[in-house]
Amino acid sequence: MGSVRTNRYSIVSSEEDGMKLATMAVANGFGNGKSKVHTRQQCRSRFVKKDGHCNVQFINVGEKGQRYLADIFTTCVDIRWRWMLVIFCLAFVLSWLFFGCVFWLIALLHGDLDTDYKDDDDKSKVSKACVSEVNSFTAAFLFSIETQTTIGYGFRCVTDECPIAVFMVVFQSIVGCIIDAFIIGAVMAKMAKPKKRNETLVFSHNAVIAMRDGKLCLMWRVGNLRKSHLVEAHVRAQLLKSRITSEGEYIPLDQIDINVGFDSGIDRIFLVSPITIVHEIDEDSPLYDLSKQDIDNADFEIVVILEGMVEATAMTTQCRSSYLANEILWGHRYEPVLFEEKHYYKVDYSRFHKTYEVPNTPLCSARDLAEKKYILSNANSFCYENEVALTSKEEEEDSENGVPESTSTDSPPGIDLHNQASVPLEPRPLRRESEIGSRR
């Protein structure tokens, strides 16, 4: 089982795998120059863009038009607004034209077009017409509009002379109601789609790998820009990579689940303020055997998904993003964004995407760390350097704002901070800030 798991979770494809794949392509008759073999020097295209759209195009789909027309309502909801407006206008105009032609044909076959009612006051002739005051196609078209929109100006009306005319008036009224219901329903469904809710759900630009509770963890940050909550919010993550099976089958995008606390339930989050999602790199993680150097040379993509129900409509929305291997910062942490004021908490989104480097973060893999092949620094050293990194950030910001350097908390000259780390230190809580992250 261990060997199978290692093969499945191998992220960085070796040169031997690339040569094996190329040999397979030639042997199977696919070596026509169009096949692409992804190596370390040639990274694959992003499968999920940063804005959440999937970078996929469908080609050679059989009976595409028929399949889309069979699900016309979903098609109308998914198309762009400009095409929705075109369909909206065409549906009414074509129905008016169709029934206008029908009423014109009825008048033509009944002989109503030969009668001039402007110079004739004989009401008996008017009563013999199928539709009064309809003696041309324009008049028939206007009567069709008046019937379907129930305008009723009063000059044109159907008589009991022709039952077919009466039937067409009733039929057009029913068709008009159906068109109204369909168009209004599609427009309302399109307006109520929770897709735009994703514009106020954000992911951090970069993911980070750092120590948390004595273990290497992959972390990324999510935030909600609205005050309205995302009900039943939960997160998922998958690692996408290519691999070759033991039988020699090439899988271009193998999807591997990344555990973010599904078993323990901590994948469900209360997204009021930005939260750091934590994936513990343990023996079940696809990143277990990867060191910093392996991450730098790897070719994979981590897709992160945030799902929840919109509070206003109770409709489920899904926000997506992805991180390539070069977008994962090893040995970094996110800057705090949640600050405790006197009577409330304040979230500073200008710090949302910012990170700071944490010294002495192990550069080895989580496996080597678990097997004690890498000796961690003293816990006080880690905490102290973590505090120094934050303090230096604040000093830089104070210097930019014009604060005198004498007010900063610099260490005395001639003292090495790293050498001082081995000395037991008193706890130094942050002056006014605390970061709330997901705790395992």
Rank of each mutant, 00 (worst) to 15 (best):
S95A: 15
I79K: 09
A366G: 07
Y345S: 04
Q420A: 10
D121W: 14
N419L: 12
V235D: 02
G52H: 02
D180N: 04
A210C: 08
L69F: 12
I415L: 13
V310Q: 12
N259D: 09
H53L: 07
D257E: 12
I106E: 06
I269N: 04
C157V: 14
L225D: 10
N55G: 07
E397F: 07
E405L: 09
E396Q: 11
S322H: 01
M211E: 15
A140Q: 03
F270I: 12
E301L: 02
Y334F: 07
T200L: 10
V208K: 00
V202F: 05
I275V: 09
K118F: 03
M84R: 12
E146V: 01
W220A: 09
E385V: 06
E146C: 02
L430T: 11
I72Y: 07
L240T: 08
Y334A: 02
M168T: 10
E249M: 08
E133W: 02
N380A: 07
H110V: 00
F58G: 12
S321P: 00
V358T: 06
V403C: 08
L271C: 09
Q420K: 05
I258H: 00
F92S: 08
V278L: 10
D119R: 01
N360A: 11
R333M: 15
L239M: 07
P163T: 06
P362S: 01
Q238D: 02
A27G: 14
K195Y: 06
S273R: 11
I174V: 04
E283F: 03
V202T: 12
W330L: 00
K190M: 11
I209V: 12
F30I: 13
R226E: 14
H53Q: 04
Q57R: 13
I375Q: 15
N297F: 12
E63R: 15
T159S: 12
L376H: 15
T409C: 12
K292V: 03
G185E: 03
S35I: 08
S14P: 13
F58Q: 14
A181Y: 15
I183S: 13
D114V: 12
M84F: 12
L230C: 08
E16H: 07
V86N: 13
G261Y: 10
I183G: 09
N206M: 06
V48L: 09
S434G: 13
G29Q: 10
Y344H: 09
A207R: 00
S3Y: 03
I305P: 00
I256T: 08
Y334K: 00
Q42R: 10
H343C: 10
R268N: 08
V158P: 10
D299Q: 07
D160M: 03
V134I: 06
T23N: 11
V102H: 03
L290I: 10
K346L: 04
H332C: 10
E394Y: 06
L142M: 08
F58C: 14
L85K: 02
E426L: 05
P194V: 03
Q420S: 10
R44Q: 08
G176V: 02
A312C: 11
M219Y: 04
V347W: 06
P412Y: 07
L230Q: 10
P412L: 09
E232W: 12
E63F: 07
V56L: 12
F182I: 05
N60M: 06
D120F: 00
H343P: 07
N206I: 05
D294S: 07
F352S: 01
K49G: 08
A70E: 04
H229F: 10
W81E: 03
R67V: 02
S95Q: 09
Q255D: 03
A366L: 00
R226A: 07
D180K: 15
T138I: 04
N206V: 07
T150N: 03
G65A: 15
V303N: 02
S173K: 06
D213Y: 04
F99P: 00
S321M: 14
H110N: 04
G152S: 05
E405Q: 06
G65V: 15
F73V: 14
K215C: 13
V56Y: 05
K34C: 10
D112H: 01
V423C: 14
L109R: 15
N198H: 07
V26G: 13
Q255G: 12
K49C: 07
M168C: 07
E385W: 02
I256L: 11
Y334S: 00
D289Y: 03
G2W: 02
P163S: 06
F73K: 15
V278W: 05
S10Y: 03
F99T: 00
P362N: 00
D289V: 06
Q420E: 15
T115D: 03
D296T: 09
T276P: 11
A233W: 13
Y68K: 11
G214K: 14
A192F: 13
F99V: 00
V272K: 08
T115S: 10
L290M: 10
S406F: 06
V403N: 12
P362I: 02
E433F: 08
L113D: 00
V304E: 00
E232A: 13
E335W: 02
G308C: 07
I145V: 07
C43F: 05
M309D: 06
K195Q: 04
T115F: 06
Y153L: 04
G31M: 03
D257H: 06
E405K: 06
V202K: 14
W83D: 03
V175G: 04
I179F: 09
I256V: 07
V278E: 02
C177K: 14
Q293N: 14
F155Q: 07
E311N: 12
N135M: 09
F167S: 11
